[in-house]
Amino acid sequence: MIADIFFMGVALLTLLGALLAVSLKNVFYNALSLILSLFGVACLFIFLNSEFLAIIEIILYIGAIAIAIIFAIMLSSPMIQKKEEKPDVKKIARSFILAALFFWGLLQTLRRTVWPAANPEGDYSLGAIGKSLLSNQILPFETVSLVLLVAIIGALMLAEKKGTAR
């Protein structure tokens, strides 16, 4: 009972953070609301028995990605906008209608589909994840490490100031 109330609160927190993250005008507030929403998602991961992923979500998403986004905001747009961006009502209405249609379609689909059910009990442990990563999923694991290396090198090459290189 208490778990259900807490679950509803966390779900509302997540959706509220997401709504603020797309609707507020100041980009800095958007990034802060994104952190709120990511925290809610991490709590939902705990409800789904994946404590390890909840920790990873907080360390990586909030600790690295959100902070990197805030850094980019600080570097690229001054807190006081030079020219006030007037909202394009037509574009916002169009995208709202499209998103609402999308949501309605998804709701219809998940109401009509009969999902296969399995026992929620099982081995969620970190050891099982590690065994799976290094045995069955070894090829995607190595590929992801290569992708990360390429992304780091690419980002360094792109962000390098012309003329400061040797």
Partner: peptide, 26 residues
């Protein structure tokens, strides 16, 4: 799916590139 729809709304409706990236994270 609500998170996804909110993300799609932000992806289509915002013009600031960082805000678009935030919607992508959602």
């Amino acid at each position: 799916s609500a998170l996804f729809a909110i993300g799609v709304f932000g992806l289509l409706g915002r013009r600031n590139l960082v805000a678009v990236l935030i919607s992508l994270e959602l």
